[in-house]
Design a protein around this nucleic acid. Structure first.
Lengths: 113, 113
DNA sequence: CCCTTGCGCAAGGAGTTGGTTGCAGACGCC
DNA sequence: GGCGTCTGCAACCAACTCCTTGCGCAAGGG
């Protein structure tokens, strides 16, 4: 099962809509970590963290490689970039709307002159 | 009740973790719209959309002003910017990690010479 | 070969989400 | 004042989320 290639950005947003998973991502941004290492700072069972990692993996934010019995997790920054891209689009759309508004105001001022 | 000022970024991510709400945000990025206008493109009852707007309002992504019996919604881009900021932090942390790795490799190369 | 360690799957239960319908308040028009 | 429109709240229900416990399986160390 591929880690989902569609632009299911909503699943990525949903995955980050949880403090624990946000913290996991922050941790992984500082470097690879095994599931056990990820679980340590939390007051959660191992399996709960394993599940969170599964969710992050399924939405494409995290990948895992196999190293003996360990399964180090790695952040997929590209996926984060897609999120940032979507947000940027909205911001740009909003700003271009403001531009249009300014154009309009400029036109009005010119008209009045 | 203030629209929440904390950095509850997880609530913002959670709010965007829904296609309908992503679409609403996209719509609002193109300009103000009333709840009725927002509801139109969806195959949903009016109240369902009203609820989605409430969620977006509570997490600080959307604000509403009163215009007679209408309640035009406005995107709060600044809040979007906070999201983008968090994502950017993670990306930078990741990249600086790569930098450190490169430094390490450089040190190794130097050592070998 | 056994035992421990690291990890994931399955089942079950409390809580939350997202939908609906029904009702009520505020405004505009006649 | 009386009526239709725009909107939000309350109640209810199906579906999902997140946690836990229990089990299974593969890898390494004695």
């Amino acid at each position: 099962m591929p880690p989902v290639l569609d632009d299911d950005l909503d699943t990525v947003f949903a995955a980050l809509g949880d403090r624990t998973r946000m913290a996991i991502i922050s941790r992984l941004a500082r470097g690879e970590a095994t599931v056990g290492e990820l679980a340590e700072p939390f007051d959660l069972t191992h399996q709960a963290v394993s599940r969170h990692v599964g969710i992050l993996r399924r939405c494409g934010l995290v990948s895992q490689r196999v190293d003996g019995q360990r399964r180090p997790c790695r952040l997929d920054v590209e996926r984060l970039g897609e999120l940032a891209g979507w947000i940027g689009e909205q911001q740009r759309a909003w700003e271009s709307r403001l531009d249009r508004l300014e154009d309009h105001l400029a036109a009005v001022r010119k008209d009045r002159a």
